[in-house]
Design a protein around this nucleic acid. Structure first.
Lengths: 337, 337
DNA sequence: CTGAAAGCGCTTACAG
DNA sequence: CTGAAAGCGCTTACAG
C-alpha cells in the first residue's frame, strides 16, 4: 500500500523529482520550467492523486503549518469555545491546530510542550497551569513563537492575551452593591493562578471603596483537588454556614456550575433567596428564568488577538511590537434583583 | 538555535549515530552494545537534553504515535466530552490525539481526512458528516485503521461504535406515553444522517405500537442550515402553531438547547405546560428545576470501545473480529410530570 | 530550461 | 561488540 511519491510522478513525466517539486510548489517560474512540462506534471499529479508527504516536507523545511494549543480541559465550555475560535482563526492563516489538555497537571503540561516541540509545530498557544513556567521558558529560549492565553506569568517575557479580570470583577461587585447587597460572598479556587487572585482582589477593593467591611468568612476557596460532587457539597456547606449571605460572586464558570448545584440542593431560589453572578458566561445561563448574571469573556477577540501575536512572531519582519493585551469583558445582566 | 541531534551525541560519545539510536531505543541488547558504552550514551543524552526529532522518526518509521480525531464541532458539549474521553483512552496506549472539527461541512471533512493522512497519523476516529463516505472509503482502501463514532454509513465496511438510538428513543417515547401524553411532538434535524433518522423512526414505531396516530404536523425538522437564533425562532413558531402539544422529544442536544430557548421565549413552563425529553444529556440540565429528562449516551464506553477497535487494527495480529458495537443509553428521569 | 546531488534527523539491515 | 551505508520523501542551491 505504498503511497505515490514525487519520484513516481517524476518517472511518469520523464523529468527529475526536483522539477516536479518546483512545479507543484508553484515555483515553476523561478525554476524556469517550460509551461508545457509544468502543465504535464500538474495533470499527472492530479490524475494519480499525488499528495505530498507532509512529514517529509516538515523534516526538510523545518515547518509544519501546525500550531499547538494547550488548554486546561477541552470539556470545559470556556476552553472549548476558545479552541473553536482559535481553530477558525488559524485556518485563515493556513494553519491547523493540534489541541491537548493539561488537566491542570504540571507534569502533563510540560510533557505536552515537549511533545509539540518534537513534532515541530510552528507556534504555541498556551493557557498555562501553575508550574509550566519552566517548559514555557525553554520554548522562549529556543525562540519558538508563543502566546499565552487567559493566564500569564509576570516573571515570563511571553506575549499574552487575557480578559480584564479586575474591571470585569469590579463591575460585578458594583452591580451587587448598587442593588443593595451588603453580604456578598466570594467563591473562588485556591489554585495559584493570576486570574482568580485578580478577581478576588477586585472583590476586596470594591467592597473597601464602598466602605463595606470585608468579612473573611464570606470568602471560600474551593480546593482545586476537590472532585465534582465534593465541590458541590463544599459550596453547599459554605452557603449553609453563612446564612446572612444575600449574594454570591463566583470567580469561574466551573465553580458557578457547582454552586448552582449547591443552591439547587439547598432548595434556595435565585435571585429571591440569593443573587448570583458568574465570571464567565455559559450558553445555558440564558435559557432559564431567572437566568444568571454573568461577566462574559470576549472569546472571539481573545482568539483573534492571540493569533495576530503568534503570526507576528512566525511571519513577522522581526520588528518588535508590544504583544500583551487585556481584553474588556462584557457584563450581562439577566437576573431581576 | 539548532537543536541537538543524534549525531551530536554520537560525536560526544565517540560512537556512531546508529549506536546512539540503538541505545536510546532500548535496543542496546539486541544491538549487543556494551553496558559501559550504553550507559555513557544515556548520560550524555540526558545531560544535553537530547530529544529525538519525531518528524524524522515518523518519516523513517512511518508511524507517528498520533491519532486523528475528526468531530463535528468541539464547542458542542457532546463532542467535547467525547474528545476528552478519547484523549484519556489514547493516552493509555501511548498515543496523542490531533482534533479537528468539520463544522458539518463535507468539503472540510474530506480535507481534514487528507490532512491527517499527509501527516501520517496512525489511526482515525471519525464522527462523519454526510458526504464523507468517499474520504473514508479512500482511507479504508489505503488500509488505514479507522473507527467511526456516533454515526456510520451502512454502505461502508468500517468499524463503528454508536449509541443505541432506537432503544434510547423508544424508551423516551414509552415514558411519555406511560405518563399519559398523547400529543407528543418530535423536533429533529433534516440532516441526512443515520441517527436522527433512527430516533425519528423509534418515535413513529412506538406511537404505532400504542395505537396512537402519528400526526405529521407534530414532527418538525429544523433545517441544518439554520443559524442559532433562527433555530430558536423556528422551533418557537412550530410550538405556537401546534397548541395541542403536551410533550416534545428533541433528537439532539443542540436542538434541545434551542428548544429550551423557544419555550422560555413563549413563556411556557416545563413540565406544567409541556414535558420535554432530550436525546442527549447536558451537565446543566440537572441543575435546574424542573430539570430536563434525558437520554444519556455513555461517552466513556463509546470512547473505550472505539479505542479498542482502533488498537486492534493498529497492533492487532490481523485476526478479524467483529468491530461494530451499539452501546446502550441511560434514561435519566428528572422531571415530575 | 532542467537534472544531479546534498541533506533534513532518524532507523535498520548488513558487514565486519 | 560496533560502524558505515542506505533510505524514508521531500526541497533547494548549484551545475550545466
Amino acid at each position: 500500500m505504498k503511497e505515490i511519491s514525487i519520484k513516481d510522478i517524476a518517472k511518469l513525466a520523464g523529468v527529475a523529482p526536483s522539477t516536479v517539486s518546483l512545479v507543484l510548489n508553484d515555483k515553476a517560474k523561478q525554476g524556469r520550467i517550460s509551461d508545457a512540462v509544468a502543465e504535464k506534471i500538474r495533470i499527472l499529479a492530479r490524475e494519480n492523486g499525488y499528495k505530498p508527504n507532509q512529514v517529509a516536507v516538515s523534516l526538510r523545511t523545518g515547518s509544519s503549518k501546525i500550531l499547538g494549543l494547550i488548554i486546561e480541559d477541552i470539556s470545559n465550555a470556556f476552553f472549548a469555545s476558545i479552541a473553536k475560535a482559535i481553530e477558525d482563526e488559524a485556518e485563515k492563516y493556513g494553519y491547523r491546530v493540534l489541541y491537548c489538555s493539561t488537566e491542570n497537571n504540571t507534569v502533563r503540561g510540560n510533557e505536552l510542550v515537549n511533545l509539540l516541540f518534537q513534532r515541530q509545530v510552528d507556534g504555541y498557544l498556551i493557557s498555562p497551569t501553575a508550574g509550566m513556567e519552566n517548559g514555557i521558558s525553554d520554548l522562549l529560549k529556543a525562540k519558538q513563537p508563543v502566546v499565552l492565553i487567559d493566564r500569564y506569568f509576570p516573571t515570563l517575557p511571553a506575549p499574552y492575551v487575557l480578559s480584564d479580570n479586575i474591571a470585569g470583577a469590579s463591575e460585578a461587585l458594583e452591580y451587587f452593591i448598587a442593588k443593595g447587597h451588603r453580604n456578598i460572598g466570594l467563591i473562588t479556587s485556591d489554585f495559584p493562578l493570576m486570574h482568580p487572585q485578580q478577581r478576588e482582589s477586585a472583590y476586596t477593593q470594591t467592597l473597601i471603596k464602598h466602605n463595606i467591611p470585608v468579612n473573611p468568612s464570606f470568602i471560600y476557596k474551593v480546593p482545586y483537588t476537590a472532585l465534582h460532587h465534593e465541590a458541590t457539597q463544599l459550596i453547599a456547606d459554605f452557603i449553609k454556614s453563612n446564612a446572612e449571605l444575600d449574594a454570591i460572586f463566583f470567580t469561574t464558570n466551573y465553580l458557578c456550575i457547582h454552586g448552582l448545584g449547591s443552591i439547587n440542593q439547598l432548595g434556595m431560589k435565585i435571585p429571591d433567596d440569593i443573587a448570583v453572578i458568574c465570571f464567565d458566561d455559559h450558553d445555558l445561563f440564558k435559557l432559564y428564568k431567572p437566568a444568571i448574571t454573568a461577566v462574559k469573556q470576549n472569546v472571539q477577540e481573545i482568539a483573534e488577538t492571540a493569533m495576530q501575536f503568534l503570526m507576528h512572531q512566525i511571519t513577522g519582519n522581526g520588528e518588535k511590537i508590544e504583544m500583551t493585551k487585556v481584553i474588556a469583558t462584557e457584563f450581562i445582566i439577566r437576573d431581576s434583583v
